[in-house]
């Protein structure tokens, strides 16, 4: 780990200014991901701006929805009665993330910005377009069992690892950010960029722009939402495939549907084709099967990760049936 300047400002303006002033600055929230990346030499910032002293933690009920401060620890998000009662997919997703110890540290803002677990990205020795643009993607012809089947490019097929982000996407969450010149409200759906030819750019956020809160709007579908994650061990493991769905069902007809997938794409993946199948339909086995298939119609699996196509179908089949049954 290279030497760096460590700063711990206590107000937002100072944090933003300190980060913006140094083009190689990095923000530190819970540190559960950043510290590992620093130690592995994947990140080598000249300045680390620790934002833990900023007063942006806590869950507030606002306009019928929730405003979750960016520094709210995941364990506090999962514990909050309003989250559990009215946004169950988020509570499920948070509790499926990492381990209890990590959830006590990791923050909701940080979990949106988690870096990929791609082993080539995390090894400074191997070629990786995301870490070192232009060096090539080692995963495409290498080990890609855990990599993307949707949204990848010929430059990068890394997967976004966050569980909470998938649920936030399905719940129409909006990220409130602050830079030195502007404040923005960015829907989670708009926050992420696909790798295309610039896999090193992962979000719309500008350098130094700070996520201050994540807002969950009051919607007709949040209450009937759930999250399902398939993984290789019972805890402390990233998703092979996960899905968050949220439904508004009235009179037996699905009025609105949100379907988001994790573990399959370089960003939390909105399965709009599946949503389109669901909208206006009755929740029958046929509808579920059609939606599950629609979600992977555009999948581009490779040799080692082809199983994910079928796994997405099965996960969606299960989670749609659960949500459709009133879960």
């Amino acid at each position: 780990m290279a030497p760096l300047e460590y700063l711990r400002p206590s107000d937002e303006g100072a944090a933003i200014a300190l980060a913006e002033a140094d083009g190689r600055a990095c923000l530190l929230a819970g540190g559960t991901d950043v510290v590992g990346l620093l130690k592995d030499g994947v990140l080598a910032p000249s300045r680390l701006v620790d934002i833990n002293a900023l007063p942006i933690a806590g869950v507030e009920i606002r306009d019928g929805g929730l405003s979750i401060g960016a520094l709210t620890r995941l364990s506090d998000v999962a514990d909050h009665p309003a989250v559990r009662g009215r946004f169950p997919a988020l509570a499920h997703a948070v509790l499926a993330a990492a381990s209890p110890q990590l959830r006590n540290m990791a923050t909701v803002g940080g979990s949106l910005l988690q870096r990929t677990r791609c082993g080539y990205f995390r090894d400074p020795v191997t070629p990786c377009n995301k870490r070192a643009p232009g060096t090539g993607c080692s995963a495409i012809d290498g080990e890609h069992r855990l990599h993307a089947i949707l949204g990848g490019s010929d430059r990068c097929i890394a997967v976004h690892p966050s569980d909470p982000a998938v649920a936030l996407l399905a719940l129409d969450a909006v990220v409130r950010t602050r830079g030195s010149r502007k404040e923005r409200a960015i829907p989670v759906d708009d926050l992420y960029l696909l790798p295309g030819s610039t896999p090193e750019r992962e979000t719309l956020l500008e350098h130094g722009e700070l996520i201050v809160a994540v807002e969950l709007p009051a919607t007709s579908f949040a209450a009937r939402s759930c999250y399902l994650k398939v993984r290789e061990r019972a805890s402390f493991e990233f998703a092979l495939v996960s899905a968050a769905v949220a439904l508004d069902v009235r009179g037996g007809v699905i009025r609105t549907a949100r379907v988001a997938l994790g573990g399959v794409a370089p960003r939390p993946w909105r399965a709009r084709a599946a949503e389109a199948v669901l909208r206006g339909s009755r929740m029958t086995e046929a509808t579920i099967a059609a939606a599950a298939s629609a979600a992977v119609r555009d999948a581009r699996p490779r040799e080692q990760n082809a199983f994910k196509v079928e796994l997405v179908r099965r996960v969606l089949t299960r989670v749609l049936a659960t949500a459709g049954a009133g879960g």
Binding site: S99, G119, R122, D141, G142, E143, E232, R233, A234, S235
Partner: peptide
């Protein structure tokens, strides 16, 4: 039986994800 394997990149001859996230041992929950 259920989780442990070391993955080596065939072209690079190098272990991929040489850490306890890449090499999964059972947790208490397992």
């Amino acid at each position: 039986a259920l989780t442990e394997r070391t993955v080596t990149d065939r072209r690079l001859g190098r272990v991929v994800s040489p850490n306890l996230s890449g090499y999964a041992v059972p947790t208490h929950a397992d």
